[in-house]
């Protein structure tokens, strides 16, 4: 048995960093798009109009019943078909993540909106605001404040889930680590390094979430 060669990681760092950029961009796009679409879903789901709430509920139930890996596959093959031209693995992955995460963020935001006293909505409407103004100016800021810890935790989970894009040949951090591991025959070094990187990022993000939330509770 030969000794470990950690130098392989140093040599592969630029390549690994490219992968990390893909992972971070996917996470960023997924969180941003997921929160935006999730907010719309939450408002629809709490709407007094039955058609809207049923449509939103159906969406959420569907996406939460399917494994992420299946949705990634599906959009990788479906989006080019629908558009009639190839869009690339990154674009289809971004769409898949946004649509998938929106179902989860939507439920988080719905709980957040429900946690705001009904009187707040009434007071805002009594002052002449429209329903959407009352939501945007009064209810949602309070809902997001209450939901920030859960949303950040969901974002951390999503960051880990981006590693699934290896199934559609997208070169995220995990995929790049696998490629280097196979190419240079350094499986132990690369997978250990990948594990440490994921752990450090996710653990420090969790710590940040916890310290961020302390003043919010007070």
């Amino acid at each position: 048995m030969t000794g470990f060669d950690w130098g392989v990681i140093v040599r592969a760092l630029p390549f690994l960093w490219d992968g990390m950029k893909v992972s971070l961009m996917l996470t960023g796009a997924g969180v941003l798009g997921g929160v935006l679409l999730g907010t719309v879903l939450a408002i629809m789901r709490l709407s007094p109009y039955r058609a809207l709430s049923v449509a939103a509920a159906a969406y959420v139930t569907t996406f939460r019943s399917l494994p992420l890996i299946l949705i990634l596959f599906w959009f990788y093959f479906l989006v080019p078909l629908a558009l009639g031209r190839p869009v690339g693995a990154f674009a289809s992955a971004v769409i898949a993540f946004i649509l998938f995460e929106a179902a989860y963020f939507g439920e988080i935001i719905r709980a957040g909106i429900s946690s705001v006293r009904r009187g707040q909505l009434l007071a805002a409407k009594a002052s002449g605001m429209t329903h959407l103004q009352a939501l945007r100016l009064v209810v949602l800021p309070q809902a997001f404040r209450a939901m920030t810890p859960v949303m950040l935790t969901q974002s951390i989970v999503m960051f880990q889930d981006t590693s699934l894009v290896y199934v559609i040949t997208l070169r995220d951090f995990m995929t790049v680590a696998s490629i280097v591991a196979g190419r240079d025959g350094r499986v132990v070094e690369l997978y250990t390094f990948a594990a440490v990187v994921y752990f450090v990022i996710c653990f420090s993000a969790s710590l940040a979430v916890r310290s961020l939330c302390r003043p919010a509770i007070a």
Binding site: R117, L122, A123, A126, S127, G128, M129, T130, Q142
Partner: peptide, 20 residues
């Protein structure tokens, strides 16, 4: 209704000031 409500002030039992 928003236009109508804008002309009628309302004060609630539990104040309902916006806490944020």
């Amino acid at each position: 209704l928003p236009k109508l409500r804008a002309r009628i002030g309302m004060v609630f039992q539990h104040f309902e000031l916006y806490p944020h």
